[in-house]
Design a protein around this nucleic acid. Sequence first.
DNA 1: CAGCGTTGTGCAAATATGTTATAACGATAG
DNA 2: CTATCGTTATAACATATTTGCACAACGCTG
Lengths: 112, 112
Amino acid sequence: MQVRSKIWLAVDGEPVFGSGREALFKAIDRLGSINKAAKDINLSYRKALSYIQTMEQRLGEQLVERKTGGLHGGGAHLTKEAKEFMKKYEQLEEGINEMLDKKFQDVFGKGN
Amino acid sequence: MQVRSKIWLAVDGEPVFGSGREALFKAIDRLGSINKAAKDINLSYRKALSYIQTMEQRLGEQLVERKTGGLHGGGAHLTKEAKEFMKKYEQLEEGINEMLDKKFQDVFGKGN
DNA sequence: CAGCGTTGTGCAAATATGTTATAACGATAG
DNA sequence: CTATCGTTATAACATATTTGCACAACGCTG
């Protein structure tokens, strides 16, 4: 038996950023394309796009700058705001899993 | 903006206990019936039952003792094992939210 | 032995999710 | 100036999953 956890940020109760979106952002940053990023992390382009759209809508700022047409067909890259957001999320996550694992050992480890 | 979290236990990667199931267990304990419990926490009876069944299957022990027929048509109540499980889960959750809220303030509070 | 309210299951409807097709775009090559 | 290319973006379709409803079985009670 293992313990799992998920941390995410919400606006008005609706999720705007979590581990899935973080992975998407990282892939976009690495590959320069929503399409390639989605494939890389095994996500449909549709879902990836709707993630981005709802995030931007709920936060009220652009996170992924995208260009259609042009060299190589276009592409996408993260805005400064998106990178800051990612960084903060990582700080938030930091240490939580370790703490949870420790607690899990305390509670479930010896007794059972 | 708020931070949210979810903690659950898994066996072989498949979830066996989380906040939803905890709420179901509490309602069963209070109402003595899966049916009433499901309605109380806005869950379909089918889903509630499949939760219980998969949990019991994966853990290999009975968690909800149920009787069909008889006084008031039957009913259900938690086994000793289920109550112990709930207690441990609560211990596991304890303090995590407080710690997260504090971290959230640290990271998102002043800067933005 | 009929009535009751529950557990449990089968099936259709509804909803969510995934997949494929296609249009628009604009720099570049020819 | 036109064709090509890979991308963004949307629409239409297909597939899984969830939900809702109906109904049988059960066993205590009056």
